Simulated assay, not measured.
Amino acid sequence: MQNQKTIITVTGYKGGVGKSTTAVHLGTFFGSRFRTLLVDADPNRTAVSWSKRGSLPFQVADERQAFKLINEAELVIIDTPARPDSDDLKELAKGCDLLILPTKPDIVSLEPMLEMVKDLGDANYRTLLTVVPPYPSKEGETLQKELSEGGIPVFKTMVRRTVGFERAAMAGVSVRDVDNRFKSAWDDYVSLGNEILELLNK
């Protein structure tokens, strides 16, 4: 990554699936390794607002401010608007090294995501199961297996549901810096970050 810029895009077909949460926590993971910029292109400006409430260990900017900062970044994470149309989705996929599609393990979230992947072809993308009910629920594992068997690229890592993420957003920090009780939530994103490094051969 030192010699070329790596771009990771996080997008989704509906709200409430952990899109901005994923962008912020990947920024935290990669921010300790690379000069990281999170570009908040979502009209809701969730990531920008998150950063203004506290302190994050990487730069956050909206797409207008990002032009001044992007040349210095080694790794760029783009938090897109929700519900991109098929043409936008194809362009997003072409313009990044990895496209991440967060989805909750329920049919309301899953169906729009499956519609999205029809347009992606052989693009480098992975689905990410988020807001997964904790043990003893098997919803996450069941859906992960079904997606994989159906030929849909899916991360091995799943992000479990916890109030820690809401508290992190309110405090303007990552869940890593909220409370030791939420260590497992941060561990999920450490696992995801390492999986991405391996996937991109970094």
Rank of each mutant, 00 (worst) to 15 (best):
Leu69Pro: 03
Thr127Pro: 01
Lys90Cys: 09
Pro112Leu: 03
Asn201Pro: 01
Val48Trp: 07
Lys183Ile: 01
Glu166Asn: 12
Asn3Tyr: 14
Lys145Gln: 13
Lys156Trp: 04
Gly15Ile: 02
Pro133Ala: 10
Asp187Trp: 03
Glu63Cys: 11
Arg33Pro: 02
Asn201Gln: 14
Ser32Lys: 15
Lys90Gln: 14
Arg45Lys: 15
Thr9Gln: 04
Val39Cys: 07
Arg83Asp: 13
Glu91Ile: 14
Leu197Val: 06
Glu166Tyr: 07
Pro136Trp: 10
Lys5Asn: 06
Thr11Leu: 05
Asp188Leu: 08
Pro153Leu: 00
Val163Thr: 15
Ile107Cys: 06
Ile152Phe: 02
Arg167Ser: 07
Glu74Ala: 10
Ser184Asp: 15
Val24His: 03
Asp79Gly: 12
Arg33Gly: 08
Val178Asn: 02
Ala47Trp: 00
Thr9Glu: 04
Leu101Lys: 03
Gln65Tyr: 01
Leu197Arg: 15
Glu198Val: 14
Val10Tyr: 05
Thr11Val: 09
Ala171Thr: 00
Gly150Thr: 05
Ile78Ala: 10
His25Lys: 14
Gln4Cys: 06
Pro133Trp: 10
Val24Gly: 08
Thr80Ser: 12
Asp85Phe: 13
Asn44Trp: 03
Leu110Gln: 10
Glu146Asp: 13
Phe29Thr: 12
Ser20Val: 08
Lys5Ala: 10
Leu128Val: 03
Lys14Asn: 02
Asp79Ser: 12
Thr36Asp: 05
Gly16Tyr: 04
Glu74Leu: 12
Ser20Cys: 06
Thr21Met: 11
Met116Lys: 01
Ile70Glu: 11
Asp97Trp: 00
Arg161Asn: 10
Arg35Trp: 00
Thr46Glu: 05
Leu192Ile: 15
Arg33Lys: 15
Leu200Ile: 12
Ile70Ala: 08
Ile70Ser: 07
Pro133Leu: 11
Val163Met: 14
Glu141Val: 04
Trp50Met: 05
Ile152Trp: 02
Gln59Gly: 09
Ala93Pro: 00
Leu92Pro: 00
Pro57Gln: 05
Gln59Arg: 14
Leu92His: 02
Gly151Cys: 06
Trp186Glu: 05
Phe182His: 04
Asn124Thr: 10
Glu195Cys: 13
Asp106Val: 07
Thr80Gly: 12
Asn201Lys: 15
Asp106Glu: 12
Leu75Val: 15
Val39Leu: 09
Gly31Glu: 07
Arg160Phe: 11
Phe34Cys: 05
Ala169Asp: 03
Lys19Cys: 04
Lys156Cys: 01
